[in-house]
């Protein structure tokens, strides 16, 4: 059987209520509950609304960046330029906002998002036009961004001002609920609508399944690919601006710790790394799971090394559970 027929068979099978996507979401939800309960045994504060709301706030930064990563992964590609897109955006926004020219200062946030668009376009040129494997090309783009940032800042911490709006969006609260989480909810609602109800969303899944078939069907494959990489860049920059509002400073390497968690959140959420399968609720739950996990590991005062190991081990176990249930469905 070829890949394509296999997938059709599988998708027909999975029309039951408890299909594979729902199983993954359920698994992560259970995982989150287990983490909270386990944590509360050690520290009673874990089940208090204050702690949970704070975790949701932090998860929002990861979740928004993971949205872009998920789109690219659905396409069957990968974006490894996330870390320095985040750092680059933070540097651009903080320096523009601190500029003495009031026009530049007021345009700080749009300028940051423009950087995301530019990075996305650069990624798309390599992947969609030159057909370089995304894994390598986005890595090279990441290296260039790193170089540009180092050159621009002279290897010191960039000075400037964090825009008021970014601080408000990242740390403010509305009716007691963190604004960052509300922003993420809006992003999530739009993403789910786009993936389920628009032509673009359908093309995205179709391209992840069989690029050749979509091309033969007459779709503008390159356009969809370019749009996806640009969207991913914008989401990275958007997340970076919120992150900037939260940390209140930009520094070299501030995006580096985000690459692994972002990809893990997407993949744990049940999105196939080969593309074409996955839903946003999974990514949403995945981002919360990863945030809770790292929070609990740091509260337990694990040394960073042990934290890294446990992190890796838990992700591997989640993936194995996915992989083995997949096998049962008869691949």
């Amino acid at each position: 059987m070829t890949d394509a027929t296999e997938r059709t068979v599988r998708s027909r099978k999975s029309s039951r209520w408890l299909n594979r996507d729902r199983v993954s979401v359920l698994l992560i939800a259970l995982g989150c509950v287990a983490l909270l309960l386990g944590g509360s045994l050690l520290y009673p504060g874990f089940l208090k609304p204050g702690y949970i709301l704070q975790q949701l706030q932090i998860a929002a930064f990861l979740g928004i960046i993971a949205t872009g990563a998920m789109l690219v992964i659905l396409l069957g590609e990968i974006d490894l330029s996330v870390p320095w897109t985040i750092t680059g955006t933070a540097i651009v926004v903080i320096s523009a906002s601190g500029s003495s020219n009031p026009l530049v200062a007021s345009l700080a946030i749009p300028l940051g998002l423009c950087l995301g668009v530019a990075v996305g376009l650069l990624n798309a040129i390599g992947v969609a036009v030159f057909r370089v494997p995304a894994m390598v090309w986005t890595l090279a783009v990441n290296a260039m961004l790193l170089g540009a940032a180092v050159f621009y800042t002279g290897n010191s911490r960039p000075n400037g001002e964090v825009p008021w709006l970014a601080t408000q969006a990242a740390t403010g609260r509305t009716f007691g609920i963190p604004n960052a989480f509300l922003v993420w909810l809006v992003v999530a609602a739009i993403t789910i609508w786009v993936l389920k109800r628009t032509v673009y969303g359908n093309y995205l899944y179709a391209l992840g399944n069989s690029r050749r078939a979509v091309f033969l069907a007459g779709a503008k494959v390159r356009l969809v690919m370019v749009a996806t990489f640009v969207l991913a860049g914008v989401f990275s920059s958007f997340g970076a601006i919120l992150l900037l509002g939260y940390t209140n400073q930009a520094y070299q390497g501030m995006g580096d710790p985000y690459l692994m968690p972002v990809i893990s959140a997407v993949v744990i959420g049940g999105t196939s790394i080969q593309g074409g399968r996955g839903n946003y609720i999974g990514t949403f739950a995945g981002a919360i799971f990863i945030t809770l996990l790292s929070s609990i590991l740091s509260v337990m005062q694990m040394p960073p090394a042990a934290r890294e190991m446990i992190f890796g081990a838990i992700i591997l176990v989640m993936l194995l559970v996915h992989g083995l249930t997949n096998k049962k469905e008869g691949i």
């Binding site: 990809i263 893990s264 790394i273 993936l319 194995l320 992989g323 691949i331």
Partner: peptide, 11 residues
């Protein structure tokens, strides 16, 4: 385990 190489080796 049926896990994709890229995510296996990431973990």
């Amino acid at each position: 385990g049926g896990v994709q190489p890229i995510v296996t080796t990431l973990a």
